[in-house]
Structure formats: C-alpha cells, structure tokens
C-alpha cells in the first residue's frame, strides 16, 4: 500500500545537521544524469530515474548512499533501454578497476 520512499509523516529521529562536501565521484554521478536527461539528449526522463530508484526496493535506502542509489538506478535504465549491455559494463568495470589499482601501486 504505502511504498517505502513515500515517507511523509512517518516517525523518525532528530534531523542530523551534519553535512559533507560532495565528492568528485558524487558530482560525476550527478553530471551523468544531467547529461542524459538534459534537453540536448532527453535519453531518459527524471521521472524514469525516480521510478528506477524507487524500484531498487526498501533495502536500498538503508544499504546504499544517495548517489549510490542514483548510479544504480541510472545504470539499470541504460541497460533496459539497450544503451549499454551488461557484458560491456562488466568489461569496462574490470578495466577501470585495473587502471585504478595500477595507479595506486
């Protein structure tokens, strides 16, 4: 009946006023979404993005950070739309990881 993201009016503890500066990684997620949804491309809509985030399920709110939810949702949409495939994503992730590990050594 009531979906997990629809939380207006529920009980919760005090508002934690702590803030963090957005990291470069988080801004990259934001940038990807802006580029895909922007009027030059309109490859996705913000409505689709919201739907995909909601469909990550109740656990996502407790297990994932804000931008982790964002990138999970946007990646799912890109795969659904056939813009990228699971296989090429897996390959690219290996490559990115290898490069980072190399850079750290």
């Amino acid at each position: 009946m009531r979906r997990h993201h629809d939380m207006g009016g529920l009980d919760a503890g005090p508002v934690d006023p702590a803030e963090h500066d957005y990291t470069p990684w988080e801004k990259r997620v934001d940038a990807i979404v802006r580029l895909l949804a922007g009027k030059e491309r309109r490859l996705i809509t913000l409505d689709e993005h919201r739907r995909a985030m909601e469909d990550l399920g109740p656990g996502a709110y407790d297990e994932l950070s804000y931008y982790e939810r964002w990138i999970s949702a946007i990646t799912n949409i890109l795969i659904e739309k056939g813009v990228i495939s699971v296989e090429e994503l897996g390959g690219k992730m290996e490559a990115v990881k290898a490069r980072w590990q190399e850079a750290r050594e």
Partner: peptide
Amino acid sequence: AYPPGHVRTPYY
C-alpha cells in the same frame, strides 16, 4: 487510491 508503481501523490 493506492495503485502500484510510480505515483506523485504522497500517501499522506
């Protein structure tokens, strides 16, 4: 109403 799926009208 309480339809499934993406809805913009909050429960409350």
